[in-house]
Amino acid sequence: MDLRRFLENAGSVARTQTILRAGFSDREIRNAAASGEVCRLRHGVLALPGAPSDLVAAVLGNGLLTCASGATRHGLWLLHQPDQVHLLCRHGGPQNTVVHRESLVPHRTAEPVASITDILIHGLRCLPEVEAAVMVESAVRQGVTTLPYLRQRLPGNRNGAARKVLDLVDGTADSAIEVVARLLFRAAGIYTQTQVDLPGIGFVDFLLEGFLIVEIDGRSHLEPRQVKKDRLRNNASILTGYAVLRYGYADVVYNPEKVVAEVWQVLRGRVIR
């Protein structure tokens, strides 16, 4: 394996000591830097041109991407990109970053990214509960963790808030925005069923109070074939006796009060409390 291929496998950036331990010589490193094949970001750190900025920040900060900054590197859902880089640093840590200290499971990849367990535990302790629930839900859906596993690693009073977030996760959502919508409806006191298979209609995202179907539309719902399918499903739903509302990402994330108000407008008069 040549030096360029090694760096590609390591996320395009690595410390010189890591490269030397992999079997490359000082001469190979000097030649690659002199030719412009790799760049010296500072003494002891090499990168390929155009290396991802978050991975560069991790190596320069002598840490690993974790929490919201490490989530997408493991294919986990993220509701919002973080304003600051989150790093797992055993000692110190650069300014203008969010530093996490504790590590439960060592990372096993060449990239400077923490393990999924560490990313999830840090997210549960650090992020707003809805954003943390989104991240954990995706991990559960992927089968890379379980709720009992995470709960066991959050003992004591200091982790009480993090354990409460786990109660919001049920592993039924197909997307991050469905997690947000589910929590929104349940927080409003609405009886909410998810991914319900209705005869003659198929699976619906939400069935509220047994008669209101709510669908959350992603980008695929703008495609002509999907528009036609949605129209047929809407008609079948109404002809079967259900009410239907449809919302997009911006509605649920940026105007949740309006969504809940419209839902209650449909439910009002048919729900006896």
Rank of each mutant, 00 (worst) to 15 (best):
D2E: 11
E8A: 11
A10Y: 07
G11L: 05
S25W: 05
V38A: 14
R40F: 13
L46K: 01
L48N: 10
D54T: 13
D54C: 03
L55H: 00
V56Y: 00
V56N: 01
G61F: 00
G63I: 03
G63Y: 06
A68M: 08
G70N: 02
T72D: 12
R73W: 14
W77Q: 14
D83N: 11
H91D: 13
G92T: 10
V99M: 00
V105S: 02
P106Q: 14
A110C: 07
E111R: 08
P112W: 02
S115N: 00
I116C: 01
I116L: 02
I116K: 05
E129T: 12
V130T: 15
E131C: 01
E137G: 10
R141N: 04
L150P: 01
R151L: 04
R151K: 01
G156N: 08
N157L: 05
R158M: 13
R163G: 08
V169F: 07
A173F: 03
A176P: 09
I177D: 07
L184H: 11
R186I: 13
A188V: 03
I190N: 09
Q193A: 11
T194H: 04
F203K: 12
I216K: 00
L222V: 09
L222E: 13
R225N: 10
R225E: 15
K228T: 12
K228S: 12
L232Q: 03
R233G: 11
R233K: 15
I238T: 15
T240L: 10
G241S: 10
L245S: 02
Y249T: 15
P256N: 08
V260S: 04
E262V: 04
E262T: 06
L267A: 04
I272R: 10
